[in-house]
């Protein structure tokens, strides 16, 4: 059972920001889908005194695709992503990740901001978002700031978000025609399973040259991370199988996986190698 807490259900963003700042004496913890926070509270891993629910503010949920940008409201659910026609054209890797995310009920509840804020290295949405160079918009009573998702996480279960800040948006530039974004995850079973290795790749090619390469890795380090040295091996190059293999190997070296109940560090490294090479090969193949 959950232990007791105060619960507020404000219907304005300002109301939320007030409550998480100092609220009624104790800063409130934001709650959206609950698929992570409620589980942690039941296990008494976290025991907030005050909780603020975000579900009463419709404008926090939604997908906006403009000419240049895609912006997700923080309370956009994983199912919203999965069912979005617009994202199917400008964030395919994110849709793939949504498809592989939990079971239906969890997808119906879990939100994109929640998946970032829960700080799980095994997050499914973060690798594709990171590979898309997504930015996180943080708002508080004292203003707002934008942080690259790539710089959002600072360590295991640590991030740059202050407790008085709320994630109010996630956005990225729409990808040019000559780009591809892909995601694949390995897990111990196909349905509703925590990721063992997740890899997202985003690539742009022009005139037979790789102009942009992004490789984001999930569940293989204290946070989701980008394999930046591997990326730089590819940019400006014409990709060959040998170069792809080398970049994939480099990606394994940028990760720091651990042994846990789901897999060993050795298998995780192997998984990074295989998936990275596979996705890079696919991307390159489609763009050339």
């Amino acid at each position: 059972m959950l232990s007791g807490f105060e619960l507020d259900l404000p219907d304005t963003l300002v109301g939320v920001l007030d409550l998480i700042a100092d609220g009624r004496g104790t800063p409130a913890v934001p709650l959206a889908g609950g698929t992570s926070l409620i589980v942690d509270m039941r296990a008494r891993r976290t025991m907030p005194n005050a909780v603020v629910w975000l579900g009463k503010i419709p404008e926090l949920r939604g997908i906006q695709v403009t000419q240049d940008h895609v912006r997700l409201g923080p309370c956009t659910t994983v199912s919203d992503i999965l069912n979005s026609d617009e994202l199917a054209g400008s964030g395919v890797s994110l849709v793939r990740a949504a498809e592989a995310f939990g079971g239906q009920m969890v997808r119906n509840a879990a939100t994109v901001a929640g998946n970032i804020a829960c700080n799980s290295p095994a997050s499914d949405l973060v690798p594709p978002l990171m590979a898309l160079d997504a930015e996180v918009i943080l708002e508080s009573r004292s203003g707002s700031r934008t942080v690259a998702l790539d710089r959002y996480f600072t360590g295991y279960k640590e991030d740059v978000r202050r407790t008085d800040e709320l994630i109010t948006g996630i956005s990225w530039k729409r990808q040019e025609e000559s780009s591809v974004d892909l995601f694949h995850k390995l897990a111990r079973r196909k349905g509703d399973a925590i990721t063992v290795v997740g890899v997202a790749v985003n690539m742009a090619v022009s005139d037979g040259t790789c102009m942009r390469a992004r490789i984001a890795l999930g569940a293989v380090a204290p946070t989701v991370l980008r394999a930046k040295r591997a990326e730089s091996m590819l940019e400006g190059e014409t990709l060959t199988p040998g170069l792809i293999e080398a970049a994939a190997r480099q990606a394994t070296e940028e990760a720091s996986p651990i042994d846990d109940v789901r897999a060993s560090a050795t298998y995780r490294r192997h998984g990074i190698q295989v998936l990275t090479a596979r996705l890079l090969t696919q991307a390159w193949g489609r763009l050339t």
């Binding site: 111990r188 079973r189 349905g191 109940v261």
Partner: peptide, 16 residues
Amino acid sequence: LITPSFSEYLIPTSMD
């Protein structure tokens, strides 16, 4: 026991 729930103990789902 280090597989104390259905998150760690994985029975087949409809996808499997």
